[in-house]
């Protein structure tokens, strides 16, 4: 498992990694570690799956695509069938079962704005259920920070 030093590394690297010739050395120095040790710990945490990803995070919309959180109310006895139908769509990037009458929440990712409505309409047709659409109107973005 991870120790206190690993947690400090995770906390410090969630906010931003330097763009400089020797960025790991700079981060290591700020944490009071040797560059080598930082690199080894990062590699181990990546291998163990503690770090899901390390690198640039894209603003999806800035890349020209469109995204929309959607939800539907799947009857319990048809839940698996509906999930399979929804997941068949390539436009569905994630899909989660959640505790609510709206019990299936998924994100549509398409190349264009128009693609969102097309995909949502197609899912309605395939499932016979209303697909509620919750596009992002405003984002109160500060960070993805969790306290490790």
């Amino acid at each position: 498992m991870i120790d206190k030093v690993d947690r400090e590394i995770i906390n410090s690297l969630q906010e931003g990694f330097p763009i400089s010739a020797l960025p790991y050395a700079a981060v290591a120095a700020s944490l009071g570690l040797a560059e080598d040790e930082l690199l080894q710990r990062l590699a181990r945490m990546k291998e163990d799956g503690v770090i899901t990803r390390f690198g640039p995070f894209l603003d999806a919309a800035a890349m020209g695509g469109a995204f929309c959180l959607c939800a539907l109310a799947a009857p319990e006895d048809r839940f698996d069938e509906i999930a399979a139908k929804v997941n068949e769509f390539d436009e569905v990037a994630h899909n989660y079962a959640r505790t609510h009458r709206l019990n299936m929440w998924f994100v549509l990712a398409t190349e264009t704005e128009a693609g969102i409505a097309e995909a949502a309409d197609a899912i309605e047709a395939a499932t016979g259920l209303a697909v509620y659409r919750f596009p992002k109107l405003r984002e109160f973005f500060v960070g993805f920070r969790v306290a490790a």
Binding site: R7, T52, L58, D59
Partner: peptide, 21 residues
């Protein structure tokens, strides 16, 4: 740096696995 300036890249950093934490 330019991509960060334009907001295409939001940040360079780590995504921890919440479950493993």
């Amino acid at each position: 740096r330019a991509l960060i300036g334009r907001g295409v890249i939001r940040r360079i950093g780590i995504a921890p696995n919440h479950y493993k934490l």
